[in-house]
Design a protein around this nucleic acid. Structure first.
Length: 429
RNA sequence: GCCGGGAUACCCUAGCCUGGUAGGGGGCUGGCUUGCUAAGCCCGUGUCCAGCAAUGGACUCGGGGGUUCAAAUCCCCCUCCCGGCGCCA
């Protein structure tokens, strides 16, 4: 959510930034917001004046009563003030609701470095790493590899839970836990505090983290409760400090969340329908930072660097793209995606999404900081990035580490986490 | 799920029965004074609106509604925390 104070101070700057979204509806809402705010402030001033009158009379009544004097004159004077306040208040409420409606729907201001573009095809590649392996045999995709090695059961998952679910089996379960534990160690070595968050959260807290459209398209609701399943630990880590004033001297706070992620994938019909690449449930180790505004560009680079070093350590070839305006979404001011080469698809595919959300989530979640107790508060900046979404990372490992005999080499850094196991091969039955 | 006790500013706490300026302590901040491991005193401490500013006004006692000229205080609903009982991996 944009800070209404910033909009009041410099509406032109906000407007011209929103204009880069190339969406006339956004500008229309913005202009409406300005008008509503004017009305709201007018009514606010009126009630303020009425309350002031009422408080004065009330005080006089108290004084007269103490002296045992007659107050009926004063009571008459005060009689119709409450009704007038109520009347104007209800108008204020009306404008406040209209403003909130728009504020909840306006996107974040974009960083100047965000490239203009329509969709993901316009994202700009900023670097590539690693060599794409050449195969002298016919490569399989992760589905064939996993089925041939009996590492997944997707048909029975469909019977039990429906499409986009899976059972992991055997060594793939071990590999999953190895990736999680390796990811956790990787982050704690870099000073990130690990968290295992609640997997469900209240609507109010979740609204602080995601756009309203996400409730429709990605978030699962628990029936009969004010609870939603987290789509990433990012949501829960942000909520951790909602309505708090943080000590500026302790920023940045660098956190790392590990949790399952639940997603409806409602807008993805027909895309990646096979295997475990795009699924309703997966595990993820997530990076999350609360920092001062001036620190967020630096922290953003740190997060993508961590993710890159993680995938470098797995020796998986990747590229980093600067996500364009049309693909950026509502919340982020700037976003990098890290895409790993998948031999089975012959494409780079998204493994990591690394966002600087500036103050957008902090305003919604009311998370501020100050260096000294008497200073005015400011909103923090928040950033989040995947370190590793393990099911997707396993797709990359299966396809990149496949051998001619159908077995899979375990990446070196994971072997200790697999109790010394260095390959995954079919068990003779 | 049931019974009881709670939630007051950055922290602790009084006030609630009996409605009438939210009081005290700690912390922090700025200022002043006195000067031996420092002490004392004073202003300030959250949010919003108007104003260039000084400042003025309003709001704020877990949240929402109600009664009243006036609500931390009375009434109704809800949330969370603590204790006990019940259930339980």
């Amino acid at each position: 959510m944009l800070d209404i104070k910033l909009i009041r101070e410099d509406p032109e700057r906000v407007r011209s930034n929103l204009a880069r979204r190339d969406d006339p509806e956004i500008l229309r809402m913005f202009d409406e917001l300005i008008e509503y705010d004017k009305s709201w402030r007018k009514y606010f001033a009126e009630t303020n004046e009425l309350r002031s009158q009422r408080n004065r009379i009330t005080e006089e009544i108290a004084k007269l009563k103490k002296q045992g004097l007659d107050v009926s004159e004063k009571l008459k004077e005060a009689a119709n003030i409450p009704a007038r306040i109520k009347e104007i208040e209800s108008k204020m409420q009306e404008y406040r609701e209209k403003m909130d409606f728009i504020l909840m729907r306006l996107p974040n201001l974009m960083d100047d470095s965000v490239p203009f573009g329509k969709d993901e095809n316009d994202n700009v590649v900023i670097r590539t790493w690693g060599e794409i392996r050449t195969f002298d045999f016919k490569v399989k995709d992760h589905i064939d590899l996993a089925l041939d090695l009996d590492l997944v059961d997707i048909e029975r998952a469909a019977k039990v839970s429906g499409a986009r679910f899976y059972y992991l089996k055997g060594d793939l379960v071990k590999l999953n836990f190895a990736l999680i534990k390796y990811g956790l160690d990787f982050m704690t070595e870099r000073g990130f505090t690990p968290f295992l968050p609640p997997y469900m959260m209240k609507r109010k807290i979740l609204e602080g983290a995601v756009s309203l459209a996400d409730f429709q398209d990605t978030i699962y609701k628990v029936e009969g409760e004010d609870l939603f399943l987290i789509a990433t630990s990012e949501h829960a880590l942000l909520g951790l400090h909602s309505d708090e004033i943080l000590d500026g001297n302790r920023l940045p706070l660098r956190y790392c969340g590990v949790s399952p992620c639940f997603r409806k994938e409602a807008g993805a019909h027909g895309r990646d329908t096979k295997g475990i690449f795009r699924v309703h449930q997966f595990e993820k180790v997530e990076q999350f930072v609360f920092c001062k505004p001036e620190e967020s560009p630096r922290e953003h680079e740190l997060l993508i660097k961590n993710a890159e070093e993680f995938f470098q350590s797995l020796k998986l070839p990747y590229r980093v793209v600067n996500v364009c305006s049309g693909d950026l979404g509502t919340v982020a001011a700037k976003k990098y995606d890290l895409e790993v080469w998948l031999p089975g698809q012959g494409k780079y595919r998204e493994m990591v999404s690394c966002s600087n959300c500036t103050s957008y989530q902090a305003v919604r979640s009311n998370i501020r900081f100050r260096d000294k107790p008497n200073e005015p508060t400011k909103y923090v900046h928040t950033l989040n990035s995947t370190l590793v979404a393990t099911e997707r990372a396993m797709v990359a490992i299966l396809e990149n580490y496949q051998q001619e005999d159908g077995s899979i080499i375990v990446p070196n850094v994971l072997i200790p986490y697999m109790n010394g196991q260095d390959s995954i091969r079919s068990v003779s039955k």
